[in-house]
Design a protein around this nucleic acid. Structure first.
Length: 813
RNA sequence: GCGGCGGUGGCGAAACGGCAAACGCGAUGCCCUCAAAAGGCAUUGCCCCAUCGGGGCUUGUGGGUUCGACUCCCACCCGCCGCACCA
C-alpha cells in the first residue's frame, strides 16, 4: 500500500463531494410540517478582514463534526456559511492596505472560501451570503424600517462615546476601560443626533433563559450585562423652583440618611437650577469641563471626587429637611434618572464625596447585634441590620424598612417601587463609510421620512475617498445625498450614517434559511421550519454584545409577526482561546502562524483532529508543533493498520474480542459526540480501538473493527476516512448510517470485581457476570488480600455495586 | 469589590459519587537500517522493601457530607475571564 499522502486524497474527495452536492440541503416544499429531526448547525460567521486563524480552525471543525454526526444519525442538517463583511475591521484593513473596502473584503472572502474548501468543511455553499452585498443589506434596511414602524428604532440627541482615532461613535460595549475596543485610543464624550434601537423595551424578556441550553457562564454574563436592579424611585422636591426630581435607589431603607443631593453634569435640569444665580458660571464651567474630560479619567472608584455646589436645596422626603444640591460627574446620566440622593454613611462613593466637601454623615442603619466592623461607610442591609434615627421606621430591620418606606412614600405621592437596568438602548449610528446605509431621508418640511420599501435597497455608492474625518464620508457625496422627499416631493437629503455591523449579524441566521428570496428577507414558513439554531458555536467574546442584539432582533421580529419563535439560539457552545507558540498570537508580536501553514505540512485531517484532541473545546488551549506531529502519526498509523487489514486474506467475520471493543467504542464515541459534546475523548476512544486492532490485523473480526474505526473518525477526518472506507470495499461513507452499538455485544461473561475495605481498594478478582450480591460478597471475603486487611475484625456492612465493586465496612480498631 | 471558570504525572489531559492518571506528547532502552527519515516493541506518577514480587502514598490548602469524594457542600490560597463610580 502506498504512503499516506493527504495532498492527493484530500483534493480527490473534495471533488467527489462537490460533484455529488453532498452537503447541500434544499428547503422543503411549501406546507411541509416541521421536522423534529432537523438540526440547524451554525457557527459565528467570520469577518473577512483578513484570513482565518487557529481559532477559526477550531470553531468550524466543531461545527463540521456536528454536521457530519447529525447527518449520519438520521437528522436533516442545515449547515450554512457566510461573511460579516461590513464594519470597522474590514474598513480598517482596507485603509491599511490602501484599497477600497469592497476589493479588500471580496479578495479575503475568496481566500477564506478556498481555505474552507481545502480543509473539507461540509458546508452548504448554496446558502452562502455576505452582509455587504446589496441583495443582503436590502433586507437589513427593510428590517430596520419594520423596527422603525414598530417604534423600536428612533433618533435622539445623546452623549455618545467618540473614538478620536477611528472618528466614530462607539457603542458602550465597544469601550473597554475607557478605551476604544478596536484601536485602544482614549474615548471622548460628544453630543450627537443618533439612531437607537430600543433594546431596553425587551430588558425583562431578555432575562428569561428558560429552555435555552447555554453554559451558566454565558447566562451569567448576559444577566450582568442587562443588570436588573430592584429598588424605588423617590422624589426629592426643590421648593424654590417648584421642581420634583426623581431618583432611583436600591436602598430606600437609607432615605433618612440622605444628607445631600447630586445631579449628573449632563442632566438637562442643571442649567435651570443655576440660571441667573451667582453659581451659574462656576456650574456651567464644570459641566463643560467634565463633558470634555475623557471617559477614562472620569471612571474609577479610586479617583478623587469632584463637583460644585449649585446654591439650591432639595427636601429629603423622609426627614423633611433641606439638603444641599451639587453637580458631580460621579453621577451617571445614563443610569437611573441622572440624579441621586447622597447617603454617605452607607455608600462608598457618597462617602468619598462627603469627605471631600465636608458634608454631614448621618448613620441610619446599624448591625442588629454587635458593632459595625471597620469604619464608615457601613453597607450591610439585610434582616441582620436595623434602622436608627429614621422616624417611624426606627427599629425595623433593613429588609422590612425597604418595603415600609416605599409604601409610606407612595401614600404621599413621593415614591414608588421601581426597576432599573444597566442595559442601554443600542446606538447603531456609525459615521463611517463601510456599512449598511440607513434608509432614511431628512426633509425640511416632513422631517424624518423612511425610504419607501419599493425604493430599497439604498445602495452604498462607490466613493473613492471613504476615509473617516469627523463627519460621515457619505455626506460629502453631494450627488448621492440629494434626493426627492418621498412624502412631499420637495428636496430632501439622505441619512449619511451607516449601521453598526452588529445589525447585519443580528439576523444573518434567518437569511441562511431562505438566502435567495428577492421579495422578502425570508419566508416565515421556511424560517420556522429550520429555526431556531440548534447548535451555535463561537467565541465567548460575543456572549454579550452580538448575542444580546440577536436575541433582541428575534424577539422584536417575533412580536412584529415575521418569525414564529423568540429565541434565535437554542444551544450555545463557547469555545476557548487558541494559542500557539507560548503566547496569544497577535499581529503586533509577529507570532501569527496561520492554520494554512499546518495544513500544507500535515494535511487537513491531522490538523482538524489535533484542534480537538488537545483538550476540551470549551477551554483555552495551547498548541505546540508536537500536537500536530502526534496527530499526523496517528493518521499514518491508522492508514497502515487499515491497509494491512484490507490486504489480509478474507476473514470469517466471526465475533471475537475486537468485536466487543468495536461496539464499546461505538457506544463511547456516540455518547461523547452526541450527548456529552466531549470531542477529545471520542478521539482517544478510536485510538484505543486502532491500537487493539493493530495487535491482530488478521483476526476474524478485524475487518469489522477497521470499518468501525474509520466510520467513527469520519466526522473529524473525513478525507482519510473516505479513502480507507473505499479501500475496505465500501462506498460513500459520508452518507452511511452512523454505526449502532449492539447491547448484546457489550455484555461480558465475567468482569473484574473491585473489592474495597473501608473504601480503599484491596483486591480485584474476576467473577461471573451473573453472580448474585451474596455471591459477590462471599467471593470478596474469601480473597486472601482482603483477609489480610480484615484482620479478623467484624464486617458491619457490605455495599455492593452490581457489576462493579464490593465495599466491606469493618469497625475501626 | 461582585460574578464566572479553572488548579490532577515532566507536559496536554482522562475519570459523568465507585479501580486516579485512559488517550497522547516528551523521555529512556531495544529492534529495523550502511546510515538517516519513517516505523515497530518495551518502560515511564512518587516513595519504600525487594529475586520473582510486594507494600505504602498521591488530585492547590483546611474542614464537612457519604460505606465510598478528583467529583457534592463550606472556608481559604493561586491563576484566567467577565462586569464595575450602575446609586
Amino acid at each position: 500500500m502506498e504512503k499516506y499522502d493527504p495532498h492527493v486524497i484530500e483534493p480527490k474527495w473534495q471533488r467527489v463531494w462537490e460533484d455529488a452536492q453532498a452537503f447541500s440541503v434544499p428547503n422543503p416544499p411549501s406546507g411541509t410540517p416541521r421536522n423534529p429531526n432537523k438540526r440547524y448547525v451554525l457557527e459565528q460567521l467570520p469577518y473577512p478582514s483578513g484570513t482565518l486563524h487557529m481559532g477559526h480552525m477550531l470553531v468550524y471543525t466543531l461545527g463540521d463534526i456536528r454536521a457530519h454526526f447529525y447527518r449520519r444519525t438520521g437528522h436533516e442538517v442545515m449547515r450554512p456559511m457566510g461573511f460579516d463583511a461590513f464594519g470597522l475591521p474590514a474598513e480598517n484593513a482596507a485603509i491599511r492596505g490602501g484599497g477600497h473596502p469592497r476589493d479588500t473584503v471580496e479578495r479575503n472572502i475568496e481566500a477564506i472560501r478556498a481555505f474552507m474548501k481545502r480543509v473539507g468543511w461540509a458546508i452548504d455553499w448554496d446558502r452562502e451570503l455576505s452582509t455587504h452585498q446589496p441583495d443582503y443589506y436590502h433586507w437589513t434596511q427593510w428590517l430596520f424600517l419594520k423596527l422603525y414602524e414598530a417604534g423600536l428604532a428612533y433618533r435622539r440627541a445623546a452623549p455618545v462615546k467618540w473614538c478620536p482615532n477611528d472618528q466614530t461613535v462607539l457603542a458602550n460595549e465597544q469601550v473597554i476601560d475607557g478605551r476604544c475596543a478596536r484601536c485602544g485610543a482614549v474615548v471622548e464624550s460628544r453630543n450627537l443626533e443618533q439612531w437607537f434601537f430600543r433594546t431596553t423595551a425587551y430588558a425583562d424578556e431578555l432575562l428569561h433563559f428558560e429552555g435555552l441550553q447555554w453554559p451558566d457562564r454565558i447566562v451569567t454574563m448576559q444577566r450582568n450585562w442587562i443588570g436588573r436592579s430592584e429598588g424605588a424611585e423617590i422624589i426629592f422636591r426643590i421648593e424654590e423652583l417648584d421642581l420634583d426630581v426623581p431618583v432611583f435607589t436600591t436602598r430606600p431603607d437609607t432615605l433618612f440618611g440622605a444628607t445631600f443631593f447630586v445631579f449628573a453634569p449632563e442632566n438637562e435640569l442643571v442649567p435651570k437650577l443655576v440660571e441667573g444665580t451667582e453659581h451659574e458660571q462656576e456650574v456651567l464651567e464644570y459641566v463643560r469641563r467634565t463633558a470634555a474630560v475623557s471617559a477614562q479619567e472620569r471612571m474609577g472608584p479610586e479617583k478623587e471626587k469632584t463637583g460644585v455646589f449649585t446654591g439650591r436645596y432639595a427636601v429629603n422626603p423622609g426627614t423633611g429637611e433641606p439638603i444641599p444640591v451639587s453637580v458631580s460627574d460621579y453621577v451617571l446620566m445614563d443610569y437611573g434618572t441622572g440624579a441621586i440622593g447622597g447617603v454617605p454613611a452607607h455608600d462608598e462613593r457618597d462617602f468619598a464625596f462627603a469627605q471631600r466637601f465636608g458634608l454631614p454623615v448621618k448613620t441610619v442603619v446599624v448591625p442588629a447585634h454587635g458593632e459595625p466592623e471597620g469604619g464608615a461607610p457601613f453597607t450591610g442591609h439585610s434582616e441582620n441590620e436595623v434602622l436608627v434615627d429614621s422616624g417611624p421606621f426606627t427599629g425595623m430591620t433593613s429588609t422590612e424598612a425597604k418595603k415600609a418606606i416605599v409604601d409610606w412614600l407612595g401614600s404621599r405621592h413621593a415614591g414608588r417601587p421601581a426597576v432599573s437596568f444597566r442595559l442601554r438602548d443600542w446606538g447603531f449610528s456609525r459615521q463611517r463609510y463601510w456599512g449598511c446605509p440607513i434608509p432614511i431621508i431628512h426633509c425640511g418640511r416632513c422631517g424624518i421620512v423612511p425610504v419607501p420599501e419599493q425604493d430599497l435597497p439604498v445602495v452604498l455608492p462607490d466613493i473613492v475617498d471613504y476615509l473617516p474625518k469627523g463627519k460621515p464620508p457619505l455626506a460629502s457625496n453631494e450627488e448621492w445625498m440629494r434626493v426627492t422627499c418621498p412624502s412631499c416631493g420637495g428636496e430632501g437629503r439622505r441619512e449619511p450614517e451607516t449601521m453598526d455591523a452588529f445589525v447585519d449579524s443580528s439576523w444573518y441566521f434567518l437569511r441562511y434559511c431562505d438566502p435567495h428570496n428577492d421579495r422578502a428577507p425570508f419566508e416565515r414558513e421556511i424560517v420556522d421550519y429550520w429555526g431556531p439554531v440548534d447548535f451555535y458555536q463561537g467565541g465567548v467574546d460575543h456572549a454579550t454584545v452580538h448575542m444580546i442584539y440577536a436575541r433582541f432582533f428575534e424577539k422584536a421580529l417575533a412580536d412584529i409577526g415575521l418569525v414564529g419563535f423568540g429565541e434565535p439560539f437554542a444551544r450555545f457552545h463557547g469555545n476557548g482561546w487558541v494559542q500557539y507558540g507560548g503566547a496569544k498570537m497577535s499581529k503586533s508580536k509577529g507570532n501569527v502562524i496561520g492554520p494554512d501553514t499546518f495544513v500544507d505540512r500535515y494535511g487537513a485531517d491531522p490538523v482538524r483532529l489535533a484542534m480537538l484532541f488537545i483538550g476540551p473545546a470549551d477551554q483555552d488551549m495551547e498548541f505546540t508543533e508536537e500536537a500536530f506531529e502526534g496527530m499526523a502519526r496517528f493518521v499514518r498509523r491508522l492508514w497502515r493498520i487499515v491497509g494491512e487489514v484490507a490486504a489480509a486474506d478474507p476473514r470469517t467475520g466471526a465475533a471475537g474480542p475486537l468485536t466487543r471493543k468495536a461496539h464499546e467504542t461505538i457506544a463511547k464515541v456516540t455518547d461523547d459526540i452526541g450527548r456529552r459534546e466531549s470531542f477529545n475523548t471520542a478521539i482517544a476512544a478510536v485510538m484505543e480501538l486502532v491500537n487493539e486492532l493493530g495487535r491482530d490485523v488478521a483476526a476474524p473480526d478485524a475487518l469489522f473493527a477497521a470499518e468501525t474505526a474509520v466510520s467513527l473518525i469520519q466526522p473529524y477526518a473525513p478525507h482519510v476516512a473516505e479513502e480507507l472506507w473505499e479501500r475496505l470495499g465500501n462506498e460513500r461513507l459520508w452518507e452511511q448510517r452512523w454505526p449502532e452499538a449492539d447491547p448484546a455485544q457489550l455484555e461480558r461473561e465475567t468482569f473484574e470485581l473491585v473489592i474495597q475495605v473501608n473504601g480503599r481498594v484491596r483486591d480485584r478478582i474476576e467473577v461471573a457476570s451473573g453472580s448474585s450480591e451474596d455471591e459477590l460478597v462471599e467471593r470478596a471475603k474469601s480473597s486472601p488480600r482482603v483477609q489480610a486487611h480484615l484482620d479478623g475484625k467484624e464486617i458491619e456492612q457490605a455495599i455492593v455495586v452490581p457489576g462493579k465493586l464490593v465495599n466491606l465496612v469493618v469497625r475501626s480498631p
